[in-house]
Computed example of a mutant assay.
Amino acid sequence: MLDAARLVRIDNVPQVRAHASVAREAWRMRFLRQAQGRKCISFTVGGLRFALAMEAIQEIMRVPALQPSVMLGRLCKGWLNLRGAPVGVVDFGALLQCAPGTGDPDDARVLVVRIGDEQMGLLVDAVDDIRPYFDTDILPIPMLGTARGAMYRGCLPNAELGDSLFLAHDALFSDAEVAEICAGHRRLYAAEAGAARAAEKKVGARRVYLAFSLDTGWAADIGQVREIVGFDGPVTRPPGMPECVHGMMQVRQQMVCVIDLRTLYGMAPLEDRSGCRILVLEHEGERFGLVVDRVDTILSLPDSQRRPSPQLLRVNGPEDMRRDAAEVLEVPGEDGREDVRTLLDKERFLATLRGQLGGA
């Protein structure tokens, strides 16, 4: 009797060598493609969807109370104090001459983008999601006679999330506009922002978090989130799965186990799930998705605003996900009060998940 497992390992058989070579080349191409992968932020302005490379965006924030500016007009809406640095804010929809947005004003955000050595705020209607891409995915589009056509790199197609116009951040504005808006605000309002800059230096290092909601406010370290996908995508649910498993979803040619957090922690189901999103996280090479009520914003906070989770939050019973949290974030609110968000503890969450799956 011949052992098939040993036969395929005979090195001097040409067919075996060719098969191994093809497998190695396929693995090498997958590795190179993953190494070249990047992320972008998708956002909406005037009913149109746009995208900017993640490395171009320094911060995403809710629209604060903007300071009045001598440049106030159709485009410039004022300036904000970004940790001691005055940053001019431009209405991106007015810049592109888009139709006025019809969404909820609470969804509006300011994207702080880097243009050379300068910073500028872009006022947009909403931030949609974070999505991975490759430079080869961007399709060129004709921009004949289009004002500011140089700012468009092309179209980033996505059958699940919708196509986006991909922008070249370094071509959004002319050199003269950058000098007027960025350098002008810095020259006029640097002294006014100086006190905040001095205070900021005492705060310490900052980290970036993805804020989301699940009955209450939550946040996750942005480095833990690989992707955000819509809840209405195709899902396969094999028979015999635990109740907390929403199903299996294909994301970037990889199967992801999607966990319904409300079911896992015995929380009441959400009546309207149109705003739900799936956060794709990775742990030890395995990816899984978490169904959350909605994605709120991206936060940049100093370590000094991380606090141990109050004991009262951890004794609310098994139907409160906060029992698996060790820290909270104190987020400054627009009205001067602080909004407390619970920080997702991935290790504790996985321990609870393993307990549920093991007992299913």
Rank of each mutant, 00 (worst) to 15 (best):
G162Y: 05
G103T: 01
R148M: 09
V315E: 14
G333D: 03
P142F: 09
I298K: 01
G47P: 12
D303P: 02
A20D: 15
R33K: 13
D272R: 11
E271P: 11
M267T: 02
R109I: 10
C182V: 05
L111K: 03
F288G: 02
L48D: 09
V45G: 08
R74P: 03
T136C: 10
G149K: 12
F50G: 04
L72Y: 14
V8G: 02
Q15E: 07
S300W: 01
P234N: 02
R207K: 11
A159C: 02
V203A: 15
R337E: 09
T263D: 01
F31V: 04
M267S: 00
L75R: 04
A20W: 15
D107K: 03
R354L: 00
L111G: 04
M29Y: 05
V178A: 09
P318Y: 01
L48G: 07
G355D: 00
Y265C: 01
A4Q: 10
R323K: 13
L343W: 00
V291T: 03
C98A: 13
A23P: 03
F92E: 04
V70G: 14
D91V: 10
L123G: 13
G116K: 06
Y209C: 02
R306K: 02
I60V: 15
L139D: 12
R294S: 11
V292R: 01
I57M: 10
D125R: 04
R306F: 04
D128L: 02
L2H: 13
R24L: 05
R314K: 10
P318C: 02
R131M: 12
V315A: 14
R109K: 13
K77C: 14
G145N: 11
L299R: 08
Q97W: 06
F212N: 04
D129L: 13
G194D: 13
L261E: 07
D104V: 03
D91W: 06
L301V: 08
F288L: 10
K39M: 08
G285C: 12
D129R: 15
C276I: 00
L139F: 14
L66G: 11
V113T: 12
W27A: 11
L299I: 04
P310F: 02
V63A: 13
R153P: 03
E118D: 12
A179K: 05
A195H: 13
L172V: 06
I115P: 07
L290E: 05
L2Y: 12
D260N: 11
G78V: 10
I298T: 05
C155R: 08
A199T: 04
